[in-house]
């Protein structure tokens, strides 16, 4: 087996899973909400990008922007429905979890109703062709995916690390009451978080749609994978999510090469169950102080 191919696939998958998992992880730790509607955001963004490609422009940047923007708006919508009315109510974690599930059922059916069951395909935004890096051969697709996700991931992490908004989100991840005491508004911060994570899901959607089709329920598998990565990394940990994304991406790549594509989920699940049995809070759940 070709080690370069393996490494490249691993990095591509890790980049996309990282986008999804980081979204789930950040939402959990800053808002205390498990967002199972992330899959819905994923699907909607695919359609958003498709609409842009269909009616506005086939330009790669426009398509990506369409997906990211739709993702951010959908994220805000989910936040408005599942977080804002519920966050100070009793039994919030369970109820918001159910609410996001409800949104994903509602939204999936709406998409099916509006766009019909036929799948859609996005234009190849990175073009066709291969690039040779030393001994390795990489398609434009993969390189484009890696570069785009890396840019967004780095931007997000840098933004969270150094900006005023980022500090506010990090503060809220640690202690919501303390955050309120320094003047951080819970609601506006929550909406910012939802929009950023939605944008991440939107980008992941556009990138994955280079390989797969867009359909009303296309979000389920990415959601599950993102969740698995977030769980394995330890909910709420940024570093853990990134490490787990690389590990899970590697397992997917090596399983697909050596055993066959249908065993990917099984090996991934065995891996994550093994991790969780050893470390119930995930890889990094113990390293960082996360939300109680």
């Amino acid at each position: 087996m070709d080690p370069y191919y393996l490494a490249l696939t691993t990095v591509t998958l890790a980049a996309i899973y990282g986008l999804l998992a980081l979204g789930i992880s950040i939402i959990w730790s800053s808002l205390g909400m498990i967002n199972l509607a992330q899959g819905f955001t994923f699907a909607v963004s695919g359609y958003g990008a498709w609409l842009v490609a269909q009616y506005l422009s086939n330009n790669g940047v426009a398509v990506v922007a369409g997906g990211v923007l739709t993702g951010a708006l959908t994220g805000a919508l989910i936040g408005g429905i599942a977080f804002i009315p519920l966050y100070d109510k009793p039994n919030f974690p369970l109820r918001s979890l159910i609410a996001t599930l409800g949104i994903s059922l509602f939204g999936g059916q709406c998409l099916l109703w509006i766009f019909g069951p036929r799948v859609k395909a996005l234009p190849k935004i990175f073009g066709y062709g291969n690039i040779h890096i030393g001994p390795a051969v990489a398609s434009y697709d993969k390189i484009g995916s890696i570069v785009c996700s890396a840019i967004l991931l780095l931007l997000t992490l840098g933004w969270m690390k150094s900006s005023r908004r980022g500090l506010e989100i990090r503060a809220m991840m640690q202690n919501p009451e303390g955050a309120a005491l320094v003047g951080v508004g819970l609601r506006s911060t929550a909406m910012a978080v939802m929009m950023v994570t939605g944008a991440m899901a939107g980008l992941a959607s556009v990138l994955l749609s280079q390989t797969y089709f867009i359909s009303p329920f296309a979000g389920v598998t990415p959601l599950v994978k993102g969740m698995v990565v977030a769980l394995a990394g330890g909910l709420g940990s940024v570093a853990g999510a990134l490490i787990a994304a690389v590990l899970i991406g590697f397992i997917e790549a090596i399983t697909a090469v050596s055993l066959g594509g249908q065993y990917v989920l099984i090996t991934q699940f065995l891996f994550i169950i093994a991790i969780l049995l050893v470390r119930p809070r995930g890889i990094a759940g113990m390293i960082e102080h996360t939300r109680e």
Binding site: L167, A171, M173, Q174, N175, V184
Partner: peptide
């Protein structure tokens, strides 16, 4: 306080 953040982060916050 925010237990995971540094003292400098606290001052900024």
């Amino acid at each position: 306080l925010f237990h995971g953040l540094t003292v400098a982060d606290h001052l900024d916050s």
